[in-house]
Amino acid sequence: MGRIQLKGVQKDFGKVTVIPPLDLEINEGEFVVFVGPSGCGKSTLLRLIAGLEDVTGGVIEIDGADATDQSPGKRGLAMVFQSYALYPHLTVAQNIAFPLRMAGLTRDEQARRIDNAADVLNLTDYLDRRPKQLSGGQRQRVAIGRAIVREPSAFLFDEPLSNLDAALRMGMRLEISELHKRLETTMIYVTHDQVEAMTMADKIVVLNAGVIEQVGSPLDLYDNPRNRFVAEFIGSPKMNIITGAHAEERQATSIGIRPEHLTISSGSGDWKGIVGISEHLGSDTFIRVDVAGVVDTMTVRAPGKLRLAAGDTVFLTPDMENLHRFDKTGLRIK
């Protein structure tokens, strides 16, 4: 249960094509993350799968059956919204019970499932509260609780953590990952935070202007980006992109090198530069270096104890194994 296939799915809003025909296959039990910049169509794609938007063209299959014209409630999918979308006039227990009520379950069965979900999500003490009386993290849990009691064949999350503060976000990230491990249910998760994508996903789908740029495992995308867009989008800090003479001498329009694939030395190396700002994170130091003939400041990852003053002259040497070359359309040259 939980296999979702998109075949030539297209979405237009009026005359604007937001998603040109697209194919995608999501396997049973997979944790799939849609990432991409704001406005690239992640939410739209998720809503198409949910049935909250009608497709302009193409077919959506869930577990092998055509679900394109099925109403959202009948697709067996549960959604967790960015704003949580808790019913404000209902208590936590009633919120979680709502889908069960709609499904016509007996009161006993409802109570059993609510208790179970509350137990898993640490909500037992809050069952009689209203959403207004809960913290952001608790609301998020209620929203997840409302989704899991239905025992859906897949979960759809639309940026569920973006309203939480950084510490809470990290905790919830782990909780959702653990939930996935335990339930082994397909999860589709939308985010524009590539750290969330890297840490949670089995499979990342990188979207750009409604087009799938690449699909693959986090490390696959990291090590073998298909094009410059993916190379730049995945990884933090961003991959350094160099155009001009340094690229041309390697028969490419542009070359890319990640901060950790540059060696910094005060003696000698390939590229000479001047140290700018250093960011000390403790374990690592990210050093900005202005290299002659390179437009953007380059970022280098160095050990945490390295101390360089702004204005020092340094030399950078790229690790040739991990240097990516891109042609003029942005595709990576293998």
């Binding site: 949910a50 909250l52 109403s71 959202p72 409630g73 009948k74 999918l77 549960a78 959604m79 919204f81 960015q82 704003s83 979308a85 019913y87 404000p88 709502f98 889908p99 709609m102 499904a103 409302r146 239905r150």
Partner: peptide, 18 residues
């Protein structure tokens, strides 16, 4: 009333009347 509230209900298999 946020759209998402109604969409959440629809996802929970409520019909439009519900």
């Amino acid at each position: 009333v946020p759209d998402e509230l109604i969409e959440a209900a629809i996802m929970d298999d409520a019909n439009l009347m519900q």
